[in-house]
Design a protein around this nucleic acid. Sequence first.
DNA 1: TTAGTAAGTTCAACGAACGAACTAAAAATA
DNA 2: TATTTTTAGTTCGTTCGTTGAACTTACTAA
Lengths: 406, 406
Amino acid sequence: MVRSSPLDQQAIKRQNRRLILEALQRQGPLSRAELAREVGLTKSTVSALVQEMLEEGLLGEGRLHNPGLGRPGTRLEFRSENALALGVDLGVDDTQVIVLDLNRQIQAVWEWVESPSTSLSERLFKLARQVQNQLPHYPRLLGIGLAIPGVVKQQELLYAPGLGWRKERPAETLSNLLHLPVALENNANAAALGETFWGENHSPLLFIMLTTGLGTGLVVEEQVYRGRHGAAGELGHWLLGSQPRHHPPSVVEHQLSLRAIVGHYQSQSGRSEGFRGLLEHASRGDRPALEALEELAYRLGCFIANAAVAYDPAVVVLGGPGAEAWPWLEAPLRAALKEQAFIPEHAELPIRPSAFGHLAPAMGAAALVLQRFLANGGTRDWSPPISTLGTRPTIGGSKSRRKRYA
Amino acid sequence: MVRSSPLDQQAIKRQNRRLILEALQRQGPLSRAELAREVGLTKSTVSALVQEMLEEGLLGEGRLHNPGLGRPGTRLEFRSENALALGVDLGVDDTQVIVLDLNRQIQAVWEWVESPSTSLSERLFKLARQVQNQLPHYPRLLGIGLAIPGVVKQQELLYAPGLGWRKERPAETLSNLLHLPVALENNANAAALGETFWGENHSPLLFIMLTTGLGTGLVVEEQVYRGRHGAAGELGHWLLGSQPRHHPPSVVEHQLSLRAIVGHYQSQSGRSEGFRGLLEHASRGDRPALEALEELAYRLGCFIANAAVAYDPAVVVLGGPGAEAWPWLEAPLRAALKEQAFIPEHAELPIRPSAFGHLAPAMGAAALVLQRFLANGGTRDWSPPISTLGTRPTIGGSKSRRKRYA
DNA sequence: TTAGTAAGTTCAACGAACGAACTAAAAATA
DNA sequence: TATTTTTAGTTCGTTCGTTGAACTTACTAA
């Protein structure tokens, strides 16, 4: 159990800095007076805290804005060069990297394909080189978020079936390469966080990642729900009904996944193309393709009805390549859900495709870093620099408490 | 979205009082020095806060304890007459009431049967009379927790299928009758909270309520997980596999519940007795009864495997009348779970029957009240006294901020 | 030019925790 | 029995973050 610690005045300050920073992140540039109204602090307190953050280089003052009566306010915004995070999505056969700042600006997107045989460390080396070459100021990054399709428990990758990795510590490796804090997360969990962090914060939010396989991520009150072993939400492994005893279990993923639906399509149509081809045919009105998508929608609807009973989400977001079929899925999926919903609210459950397309996990990975940074009131000490581990004098202990805001 | 508010010095104080009170609740009577070590505050701070709470009558000083070197500490404990909560479980055909204090002492237990036709308000009146007659000092109760088998959203009972109630506000009614704060909660959720509050705090904890029907409750980091509409965990309504289209859905509850298993037993044995009779036969080694329990265990194992994939709990607690079959269930259930587990950790998932038997929901209902009281640092203002609503001058607003610790 | 309005700053005061130095009460030791 | 050691609890001056009132600044309206 995590025992919460006593509060001191530093904690007040950190929390109030956090509120200010989160307001700026959510609502864009604001003046001191607007901030004061927004977060419920006095103008004097906001002034003092903002003053510090200006001196730290975290915020910058912009040109006046807000034309109207009275003295115009000073525009406060993040100095994006000091509020940058890297989001990385290590997919099964490609890598997405996105550089984001707290002003919601995408500074860069890099994508490349990977051969499935590439080892994890090779991929991390490649990533590190890319960062060093493309981002001359990369040491000023706040950190790196790493999304991987696998079970993650306390910064350790336990299993990544699609990639064939087990018991790896990629966060540690990457942190040592780039001397930056790295946060590791399951890709569906990351994507779910990204949706609430960058979009509207509905809670709970369920993200359904429809790829070759099937995975989900849940975010409750801005926190990723991981469960005890980081295995929560691996709903692709739900078992179908009561299993015949002593048989290998048949799981949802065998029915509901791109592999499953493409298999269904191929056996019905006699064609051998993949999901992309299926979509092409569907857009031309091809009967077997449309029928396959309708089947997918129906199965997805049943699945969402079950997930709704378990999690009772406020909103469901669909991601992964499967989300590209959304125009064909929407209507039959709704119909299936209406049929199967437990409470009437679930029949009307808001469902939408991710706003970030295939970049959703990378966006979420970046959000992971920025969220942590904000939660600490804009300090970088969320993770000790691994590079210097053991060479530094011990920090902490009641005597040598460090002053955090210089 | 709940916007968190800025912290002031009162918040520090409340949080530190909370830590002290929680330590006392978890670990029993402690001295000031032990408290200081336990929660990480200085002796002076603990002394000051304890002093206040002594004056408020919340704590009392006991006889010296802790024999050993040095001056013995003063035993601090709750004055139970000022730290009492009532937990109520409105079951389908009975009512359980339990009076608990923060020293973990059960002060009273009342139970009575109910006719299923009794209306909700009748049951509440009866309860209120009982409280007034049996607890002369009831106005000093901290509050009442009310557990009901139904979907609860923000203190409103949306549906209680077993009881035939819809859209009721029993918390408001009871609060008006007794002039006490009342917290309403789903019974499985309440029971889950009770397990973590009164027992070891593992997170997440999944409580499975095996009664005529099937319901579950989830507690994550000491918080009940309710979902958007309070419908999370109604896993009895999970759908079995892919449903045939346009058919009424077949749900888990039809396979896994006492009604289902008794039906199975009756059809196999030709007998017409209920679950209690089944258990009697089983304890005498009766073949059909044992077979029925084994079937129950198998289905429960499959169910837990699915729930584990969704929630990845640290521990599963079994409650309701079904838990009385635990001695027969344990071994086959484990075997089924081992077969079906997704990750190896789930094969070894700790599962145990509730320590509180049929009183688990009532215990949890009381915990709901006490937890809230502690979370506020031991103040009673967690809910405005409904009785005086509208007749009091407005509290709050930046001018008239009330001093909380008199 | 002047009045009005809103933004932002300054500063004394408050309140909470802290920590060092103290007193209190017991066991251990001589 | 007297003294030392050890731990419990108190006292009080210090530190620090927020507050609120009074102030200055910068703009619009008349």
